[in-house]
């Protein structure tokens, strides 16, 4: 299971500190999804070796309008394993689900954002994952939290109906915001998710990483076609 974190300078803990804590909490890896204007500098391999946890370079593209977002996605797609889009407005949500190059539409229900059956079906078709962000459930209270829980429920109903892919995250911005997988499952259950849904959502980050590494690897030519050396035939 993976968690997707915002590291310093986009958050209050460095990549290494997130990795150390995530390893202790039982995660298999972290995806560093800093916003495009606050990228972290780190040596993923060094951190991964030290704390025995996978460290993945990602990005969360944040832009006000779809055309700029599209440019940012293009800039980051080749160099980063996971590309997410900072959702939360109708225009950006619609843009993200129509782009197969986007891996994850982050927190689509935040702010003024909304999702309907058309968006959910487009996401299912293009393989763009919706993020169920537990961030405001864990860290807000009162009306904001009620709104967040209502949003999660609506999104869950649409995702189930369209059979759209999804990820789950606590949206941590420091090591103190991280929560262990089992604790997130317990939170999910109080919100009406099944344990399997939360586990699938946490594991989905890992599947994105595995798939994109394969595609970005040297041996990939096109779906179903790989370059292999002749010696392998024996």
């Amino acid at each position: 299971m993976f968690e997707a974190v915002h590291a310093h300078p986009d958050g209050a803990a460095t990549v290494a500190r997130h990795a150390k804590t995530a390893a202790e909490y039982g995660f298999d890896g972290i995806v560093v999804r800093n916003h495009g204007d606050a990228l972290a500098e780190f040596d993923a391999e060094e951190v991964a070796d030290r704390y025995d946890v996978d460290v993945v370079e990602g990005v969360e593209v944040r832009a006000d309008d779809p055309s700029r977002a599209s440019g940012f996605v293009g800039n980051h797609r080749d160099s980063r394993t996971v590309v997410a889009v900072h959702g939360g407005t109708d225009a950006i949500n619609r843009f993200a689900v129509e782009q197969p190059a986007v891996d994850v539409l982050a927190h689509p229900m935040a702010g003024d954002g909304d999702v309907n059956h058309v968006i959910a079906n487009a996401a299912a078709e293009n393989g763009v994952r919706f993020e169920f962000s537990f961030r405001r459930v864990l860290r807000a209270d009162g009306g904001q939290r009620v709104q967040a829980i209502r949003g999660l429920r609506k999104l869950r109903e649409l995702v189930e109906d369209a059979d759209a892919p999804y990820v789950v995250s606590a949206g941590p911005r420091s090591h103190l915001h991280l929560r262990a997988p089992r604790d997130l499952v317990a939170v999910g259950e109080t919100l009406g998710f099944t344990a399997e849904q939360v586990e699938t959502g946490l594991a989905e980050w890992g599947r994105i990483v595995e798939r994109n590494r394969r595609i970005q690897g040297d041996s990939f030519v096109e779906p179903g076609v790989y370059r292999a050396s002749v010696d392998d035939e024996e």
Partner: peptide, 10 residues
């Protein structure tokens, strides 16, 4: 103005 969580690697 605040703390930053780091490790010896940083």
């Amino acid at each position: 103005d605040a703390f930053v969580g780091a490790t010896e690697l940083d």
